[in-house]
Amino acid sequence: MKLPNVVQELIKAQNNFDSGAYANLFSETSVVHDEGKTHNGRKEVEQWIAEANEKYKSIMEPIEYTQKGNKGVLTANVSGTFPGSPLVLKFHFEINEGIIQSLKVTE
């Protein structure tokens, strides 16, 4: 499966629980939607992922990736310390010039 570099780096940062590296893959004006909450900008993204890493210890294993234009969907098996683990989740990206502009996580 061919993944854009920024998606490969996101998976690597997630699996290493590196919230700084994870957040640096997002633009300063990025938007993330997860668990019914919205996080705006790189600083909020870093805070969100640091808290999620601490709480859930999630590891991502890519299953499939599709892309149309600057939008992509990563389907991944996600395991961690959350109820129902493991789950298959979809990560809906908008990527411009190698930087994530938006991410929405769905089941």
Rank of each mutant, 00 (worst) to 15 (best):
M1E: 03
K2S: 13
L3C: 05
N5G: 08
N5T: 15
V6A: 10
V6T: 14
V6R: 04
V6N: 09
Q8I: 08
Q8A: 12
Q8G: 09
E9G: 02
E9F: 02
L10F: 13
L10W: 11
I11A: 04
I11W: 11
I11C: 06
K12H: 10
N15R: 05
F17A: 11
F17H: 15
F17C: 02
D18C: 00
D18M: 06
S19T: 06
S19D: 07
S19I: 08
S19C: 01
G20C: 08
A21S: 14
A21N: 12
A21V: 12
Y22Q: 05
Y22M: 11
A23E: 09
N24V: 02
L25G: 00
S27W: 04
T29K: 13
T29V: 04
T29R: 13
S30D: 08
S30E: 09
S30N: 04
V32Q: 06
V32M: 12
V32R: 04
H33Y: 15
D34V: 06
E35A: 13
E35V: 05
K37R: 09
T38I: 13
T38W: 05
G41S: 02
R42A: 01
R42N: 01
E44A: 14
V45D: 00
E46W: 00
Q47E: 15
Q47S: 14
W48M: 15
I49L: 03
A50W: 00
A50S: 14
A50R: 12
E51I: 04
A52M: 05
N53Y: 11
N53S: 10
N53G: 02
E54A: 13
E54I: 01
E54W: 03
E54V: 00
K55E: 11
K55H: 09
K55P: 01
K57Y: 11
K57W: 10
S58M: 09
M60R: 13
M60F: 08
E61F: 07
E61N: 11
E61I: 11
P62F: 10
I63Q: 12
I63E: 12
I63R: 11
Y65P: 06
K68Y: 09
K68C: 03
N70D: 15
N70C: 02
G72Q: 11
G72N: 05
L74Y: 09
L74V: 05
L74D: 05
T75C: 01
N77I: 01
N77E: 03
N77D: 01
S79W: 01
G80T: 13
G80F: 08
T81R: 15
F82V: 04
F82I: 01
G84D: 01
G84N: 02
S85I: 08
S85F: 07
S85L: 04
P86D: 06
L87H: 12
L89F: 12
K90W: 08
F91V: 06
F91W: 13
H92N: 15
F93E: 03
F93P: 10
E94M: 04
E94P: 00
I95G: 07
G98R: 05
I99P: 03
I99K: 15
S102D: 06
S102H: 04
S102F: 09
L103N: 12
K104N: 13
K104I: 14
V105L: 11
T106D: 13
T106S: 14
T106Q: 07
E107G: 15
